[in-house]
Design a binder for these strands. Structure first.
Lengths: 386, 386
DNA sequence: ATGATTCCACAAGTCACTTACATAAGTGAC
DNA sequence: GTCACTTATGTAAGTGACTTGTGGAATCAT
């Protein structure tokens, strides 16, 4: 569509920006690709793909040729184990390495980059600890460094990256701008999607971290097969991510689920029950210590945690009633305290809700946000391939 | 696909159930139909439809022939006002009367049937006042009577009905069963979709009334062009309907938005501030009288209303924060008191929410539910035509 | 009437897909 | 090793929905 003439004639064109592009597939090829990916067996014979798609064999064959030319599928050497009569069938399989996506979790204390192939299998990971007081530039630089390191570790070239999603603390609008972040005040106002867009030659999506955690738990965690999920981040920071009918909810300003602003809910005060000075940079370690103490039988530590739980239950019941999920996933952010939260929250919801949802603790822990980012990036890619 | 042989040969077939069926259109016809409907002008020339769809003129012509055969479009006599050179172009226009949908509002005190054509223009209406204590059977009979009366008044045959949607009080699951209705206790457990399905030879959808009101306000009321809407029913009954990204939210059990169960929210007690005995059958009239008194300057009536408003604001703020809508529509159910509610709720949200939504009072009043039902039925039809 | 103008109707060509058939590449029996 | 059998591949011819292209029909201006 764009001028082939200009690129061949004039030399003063801006350099072709090496845009990583998801290939555009004709309808039949997209159908065949979906069938190959959906197949239970690792390798798919042409005839199988034909019956699966309802298309005829010749059509499937040309589609497979195109997909093979794009690298999206590869022909497989015939399995020597399977010896049957007749001419052996050609087998194809999806090549998840044809493209890659990157999920970024830009947190207060760390930046985590997760590189995955088109199957969502993690190819490489890179984590960089950062100073919670780091200014914008430094945190962005750390993000780019983590992304680059993951790409290098995975041996993936930049133009093999088809989509990037970043998750971060705060209210993110639909353009990828951070409207407000209380945990990272200097983050407020940053157009993160545009900033990162200059680094990557592919679409960059930005989403609130709790939402991505909700997506991840549905993808790989405790909320698999569940369409209506509320993810409840309960820890030094309170947050909510909501899936309704399997689709991520954002709200008009991107602040859906942020009921913490209501003093009656008590969420803003809740972290104060855990540690004396929640804003201190050392609060993260203090909470870890507190949990360890409570597990070791320290009564005053348990009491603190009890007060914290009492403070969050009303809010938990409110979101459960408001969104009517099938499952509430509680995640903490700090390591492995989710089990301490699950039972009390379940009890609270059982008492407060007429039709109480199940409550489960996060299965993915600290990786949830980056994995959710990977899933969102994959969804973006797959929407284009369809 | 189904056996033409059987119907012609055997006589013992069950009588063809006169199924009202939305016609199945080939892709090009659906495209052309959409173009004809979307056109600004009432009549569309073939060439215009061709450029609008991107299809060629011959293709558009055969599509129009098919649509005309189905009655979905009609050829229009050439406009004698438009005198131009050359052979006059044939004009087509959408025939909204090709099919009809029915919206039902099955309430405590009334049943309202609204019959509309495919443009959503109301063709006929029938309202039956019912005893609030009426048992299931009677209310269902009244519903059927209202539907029939509307059909007769509109001169529409039963097989011209392409979809029916019913709205009613209570928690409705995705199969159209009423799981719980506090306002109509004998309604609980009724499989309303199946009951009504025996009456109508077309799909019957059932939805909670507040949700339909939200849909209606977005369609014809104050929430036009707004994708994220919370409809707040504030009166003798509290309820919520939520649209997020323009799509109706239901939740896992169909109880999304039902935060009234929380005592801290205060919604269950709120109607008690308006009248002394909210469960009495005369409470409806009592509220109407109360509003009239307050408008006339009665101090104690105003005080009652003030207490009611104070009791609902926390819940309003909660749903506003939870769902992050662009607009909150307050509706009452009883006649025209919404303006008394709008300003106090707006004030409450402005104080309690960091990014307060706009608050508007319902534009559709008592008709909202039935009109929302019409819209949902039309959406169902249009999804099939696409 | 005649020509200009505009739209319609029919024919022929194109594309993606189908069915149908001949050919290739193996296995197993002799 | 050769032959028959089985199974999958490769290619040709056919179909349907859509395209472009050309001649014809309906109206206005002269």
């Amino acid at each position: 569509m764009t001028a082939g003439r200009a690129t061949t004639s004039a030399g003063e064109e801006e350099p072709a920006p090496a845009t990583a592009r998801v290939p555009v597939l004709p309808a039949s090829a997209a159908q065949v690709l979906a069938a190959v990916r959906a197949a239970a067996a690792p390798a798919v014979k042409v005839a199988e793909a034909a019956t699966a798609t309802g298309l005829s064999r010749p059509t499937v064959e040309v589609a497979l040729d195109r997909l093979a030319a794009l690298g999206l599928v590869g022909e497989l050497a015939p399995d020597p184990g399977e010896r049957r009569m007749g001419r052996p069938a050609r087998s194809y399989r999806f090549r998840p390495g044809a493209g890659h996506v990157l999920g970024l979790d830009i947190g207060k204390y760390k930046v985590l980059a997760v590189l995955a192939d088109l199957d969502g299998d993690v190819v490489a990971t890179h984590r960089i600890e950062v100073d919670p007081a780091l200014p914008r530039k430094g945190r962005l630089a750390a993000t780019r460094a983590a992304a680059k390191a993951a790409l290098v570790a995975g041996g993936v070239a930049a133009d093999q990256l088809w989509a990037v999603t970043a998750g971060t603390t705060g209210i993110v609008d639909r353009d990828g701008r951070i409207k407000l972040s209380s945990a990272l005040p200097e983050w407020t106002g940053l157009h993160l999607a545009r900033s990162l867009g200059r680094t990557f030659a592919c679409p960059v999506l930005v989403e609130n971290d709790c939402r991505l955690a909700a997506v991840a738990e549905r993808w790989l965690g405790v909320a698999q097969e569940v369409d209506d999920v509320v993810y409840l981040l309960a820890g030094m920071r309170m947050g909510v991510g909501v899936l309704n009918g399997g689709v991520l909810q954002r709200g008009h300003n991107g602040s859906l689920g942020e009921i913490g602003a209501l003093p009656e809910i008590g969420w803003n005060a809740a972290p104060g029950h855990l540690v004396d000075n929640p804003d201190a940079e050392s609060s993260e370690q203090a909470v870890t210590a507190l949990i360890a103490a409570a597990r070791a039988g320290d009564g005053s530590a348990s009491a603190r945690i009890g007060r914290f739980l009492a403070a969050i239950t009303l809010g938990a019941a409110t979101v459960a009633l408001a969104f009517d999920p099938e499952l509430v996933v509680v995640g903490g952010g700090f390591s492995r305290a989710d089990d301490l939260v699950q039972a009390p929250v379940q009890h609270a919801l059982d008492t407060l809700c007429p039709m109480p949802p199940r409550v489960a603790s996060s299965a993915l822990g600290e990786d949830a946000v980056a994995l959710g980012a990977v899933r969102v990036a994959l969804d973006h890619v797959e929407a284009q391939l369809a």
